[in-house]
């Protein structure tokens, strides 16, 4: 598979996310989450037997109905569901320890997994330069999610900063957190307090990752992830004919 010809960073990003999902997982994405939506539909198409929960109330919807909008609140993730299992049920699922993966995003993030979703800039919380949309439940879910995945379709020093001033939530010490960007994967293992560079994508280098990251990266040698497989690319194409995957990039 050749970068730029057979696949782009969008497909590599999606493949990296798909590979995080394991059989039997209860996997959640929230609203405004077009990338994880396509990822999870493609994982279903690849035959992974996991449970798909989301805010439309639908549980395991008909993933072959093509999404037509980047909104993840439409009936697209509702029609063909086997049951309704809404956000209140989902919060309880995670609080009971039965959730496995939550796909969440951020405005900014730092090396210790402090995540900004509320405000950026300005002298204080009530006088921000940018009032963000808020955590949408991340503060409740992250402390009880064993494998939080932060998906962020931009990798730059404005997003990945030395220190997040106001943290809507922070990675839980006893849980794992994974940060996936268009260049690489960072992981914070349970028991640890900082992200380590875990692997890089085939079309980049550690140097490029370092240049675009606002915190210090100590790792000097990390594995290069395999490019998307033909099966992964075919699944992405099949579930997403309108190319909603490209929306966030």
């Amino acid at each position: 598979m050749e970068y730029g010809k057979d696949y782009g960073k969008e497909e590599m990003f999606a493949a990296a996310c798909i590979r995080e999902i394991q059989e039997g997982d209860n996997v959640f994405h929230g609203l405004a989450s077009s990338t994880p939506m396509v990822v999870m539909k493609a994982a279903k198409e690849l035959g992974k037997d996991f449970n798909y929960v989301t805010l439309s109330d639908g549980l395991d919807h008909d993933w072959l109905r093509p999404p037509y909008s980047a909104s993840t609140l439409t009936e697209n993730t509702y029609i063909g569901s086997v049951a309704t299992f809404g956000l209140d049920d989902i919060f309880d699922l995670f609080a009971r320890g039965q959730g496995h993966i939550a796909f969440l995003s951020c405005l900014q993030i730092d090396k210790t997994g402090r995540i900004a979703m509320s405000v950026l800039g300005g002298p204080d919380y009530d006088h921000s330069a940018l009032r963000g949309p808020g955590g949408a439940g991340t503060a409740s879910i992250v402390p009880c999610c064993p494998r939080t995945i932060i998906w962020k379709c931009a990798h730059d020093t404005r997003t990945m900063v030395p220190h997040v001033k106001f943290a809507t939530t922070t990675a839980a010490k006893d849980k794992s957190m994974t940060l996936i960007t268009p260049l690489c994967i960072f992981r914070k293992a349970p028991g640890e307090t900082e992200f380590k560079l875990d692997s890089i994508f085939p079309y980049t280098t550690i140097e490029e990752v370092k240049e675009n990251t606002g915190w210090e990266i100590a790792e000097t040698e990390v594995p290069v992830l395999d490019p998307p497989t033909a099966e992964e690319l075919a699944a992405l194409k099949k579930v997403d004919p309108n190319y909603i995957l490209g929306y966030e990039f």
Binding site: G135, A139, V142, P143, F166, A167, T168, A172
Partner: peptide, 10 residues
Amino acid sequence: MWGSDLLEQN
């Protein structure tokens, strides 16, 4: 909510 600055904010 542990780890959230929202606790102290509100």
